[in-house]
Design a protein around this nucleic acid. Structure first.
Lengths: 142, 142
DNA sequence: TCATTTGTACCTGTAAGTGTTACAGAAGTG
DNA sequence: CACTTCTGTAACACTTACAGGTACAAATGA
């Protein structure tokens, strides 16, 4: 799979922001923790901003901070903010409509997609950013 | 996401094979239903063969058929046979180990991956190829 | 021997993600 | 106002992965 590490990056960045709720974090600072480029981080923050998870401020002393308390942000929201696609894609080209299987398989697969998506939602909405933040901090002590 | 339609194609092809358990289906015939190239299908069948879901035979009157009864093949097996990756990828480059978040975030994300994978398994292992086959056939009547 | 069919190597085109540079515009400061 | 610091975003190159396609060796049945 041409896997997307956007979700990982998003959780990473948001965990950073969760460390100091009212501080403005610079994209450059965040980029150094993620080990990537500041522009990559800003692009990601743009998506998170669009999803009302963070607030950014331009200009001197600008930066980005959480829009809400870490307890009120769950991972499903983060996942939705950065994932445009599904777990698996439907056929690239529509299958042969003259074939009884080809004609109906897409509808069946589409139902499956939704079922899986619900499963992911169930799992991810159990965790808040606060939970993740605590797990990360605990790990630091070991 | 650069999404993978391999799973969709696999379910499609296996549904075709399920229509006639002991018939040898030619890759060219299957390709026409999927609306793709015979080589693409053969590559896919190679993976399914490796996972012991189908049996292929070279030579004249060769082709591919199911290795087992459709009731004994569940979608989780199919998913595993064609999906090398996870739902989301970990960081492309390792994060900054000097940052307390960077140092521990990967372990946390890794646990999350497993949790989500379990969720998908729960969902997919509820369906057998027989179930899908029946759904497809029913749709054809409508 | 010959036609058929898989398995696979190899090449191409295309799409997406990532990394970078560059720069306009916003915002605080002297 | 001039200057500095940041974000937002456009533009471009690089890499990777998937899909489509050609070609051919090897297997198999007639």
């Amino acid at each position: 799979m041409a896997a997307n590490s956007q979700f990982s990056m998003a959780v990473h960045v948001l965990s950073m922001l969760a460390r100091s709720k009212d501080e403005n974090f610079k994209s450059d600072y965040l980029a150094k923790s993620v080990n990537t480029n500041a522009v990559v981080v800003r692009r990601l923050l743009g998506q998170l901003n669009h999803a009302n998870l963070v607030v950014s401020q331009t200009g001197a002393n600008g930066g980005t901070r959480l829009a809400r308390c870490p307890k009120e942000i769950d991972l499903w929201e983060i996942y939705q903010a950065v994932n445009c696609g599904e777990v698996f894609a439907l056929h690239a080209k529509a299958p042969n409509q003259d074939c009884p299987v080809g004609k109906n398989i897409e509808a069946v697969l589409c139902c499956l997609q939704k079922d899986i998506d619900n499963g992911i939602q169930e799992k991810l909405s159990k965790y808040t950013l606060q939970n993740v933040f605590e797990m990360v901090e605990q790990g630091a002590l070991v």
